[in-house]
């Protein structure tokens, strides 16, 4: 008896499955095998998070039915992954690669010979903002205090960040210096291996100001261990409405960290269209937005050609910025 019941359930399920396949509307392109994400960094970082979160949301919402894998390919702020994708995976329609401003910096500083012209930029899925952070007991109460100290003696303040000079965390400091008329190359900046180490050094009182992402310090902020002097966003963040921006304190420093995805060169037009549409749908789902809020990311998105134009402009902007700041000859 039991066996028959089981069998009939199976038959019904199979029939339903067949109907579902037959009944689905014909799409120009859709993935026929497993999807591969490449996170160009070690597990745990921003790029890894984009990949794993997207993969999870794809699965949860059923936007993509094929299984998705994440492959970590760390090296040179995205240089290794882009070289691999351009050289080895041309025309692979099932491959998505995470990216952010760090990749643009790698291009601008010529760490990689490839640019956005060599790949297929897809979309920006979120953005994030950095902040100038001090210990709660610091003598800098507002951004104005910091500016005053820097103007008085540009070598009196030690900044810390999670990346090498000439890349993101340092540029945020350099922009501040440039804005208030101090030579960016003369400001003291200590690079650390990642935001976590920079934060530890800040908490231990070894450096004065940290140039860190807001999401990195959220826990410390909550505990009252640190104070955010200014966020580098246009207007106050939705997730952290109490934090003042630099702009509202009269120092016009805005720096957006975008998080997005690109594909290999030479992918078919229909595949690109499919992925742009799918990601567009993904960022609108409540599942995605719940994850995004947990991570402290802001809902700023760009797709397809818009995004492509944006990153290509950014590449040019960074090149001139780095020249201006003296990191690039």
């Amino acid at each position: 008896m039991r066996r028959i019941a089981l069998l009939s359930v199976l038959v019904v399920a199979l029939a339903g499955f067949l109907v579902a396949i037959q009944g689905s509307p014909a799409v120009a392109w859709e993935p026929k095998k497993s999807i591969e994400f490449i996170a160009p960094a070690n597990p745990g970082g921003g790029w890894d998070t984009i990949c794993r979160t997207s993969a999870r949301v794809f699965k949860k919402t059923g936007l993509v039915t094929k299984p998705a894998y994440v492959k970590n390919m760390p090296g040179g702020s995205g240089s290794v992954a882009i070289a691999y994708v351009v050289e080895k995976r041309k025309g692979d329609n099932n491959l998505l690669v995470a990216a952010s401003n760090s990749l643009t910096f790698s291009m601008a500083i010529k760490r990689t010979p490839y640019t956005y012209d060599d790949v297929t930029p897809l979309a920006q899925v979120a953005s994030e903002y950095g902040a100038y952070v001090v210990r709660a007991d610091s003598k800098f109460k507002t951004l104005a205090d910091l500016v005053k100290a820097l103007k008085a003696d540009r070598k009196s303040v030690t900044f810390a960040g999670g990346s090498a000079p000439g890349s993101m965390d340092h540029i945020k400091v350099a922009l501040l210096a440039k804005e208030i008329g101090v030579d960016p190359l003369e400001v003291i900046y200590v690079p650390y291996q990642g935001g976590g180490e920079a934060l530890a050094s800040l908490l231990g009182g070894h450096v004065d100001v940290g140039s860190l992402d807001v999401s990195e310090v959220a826990g410390q902020l909550e505990a009252g261990k640190v104070r955010v002097l200014a966020v580098q966003s246009e207007s106050r963040l939705k997730g952290f409405p109490n934090l003042p921006t630099a702009r509202e304190q009269g120092v016009d420093v805005v720096f957006t960290v975008w998080r997005g995805l690109y594909m290999a060169p030479g992918v078919s037009k229909s595949a690109k269209k499919f992925w742009v549409e799918t990601i567009k749908k993904m960022v609108a789902t409540p599942e995605w937005n719940a994850e995004r809020e947990k991570l402290g990311w802001e809902p700023v998105v760009k797709f397809g050609d818009d995004f492509e134009k944006y990153v290509k402009d950014e590449h040019q902007r960074y090149k001139s910025l780095l020249k201006e700041l003296g990191f690039l000859k």
Partner: peptide, 20 residues
């Protein structure tokens, strides 16, 4: 570093702000 960094990421995705 290493494995604990991934665990920190996991905490955030579980909607728990790691911190003091």
């Amino acid at each position: 570093g290493g494995a604990t960094a991934v665990m920190l990421g996991a905490l955030m995705m579980l909607d728990i702000t790691p911190g003091p």
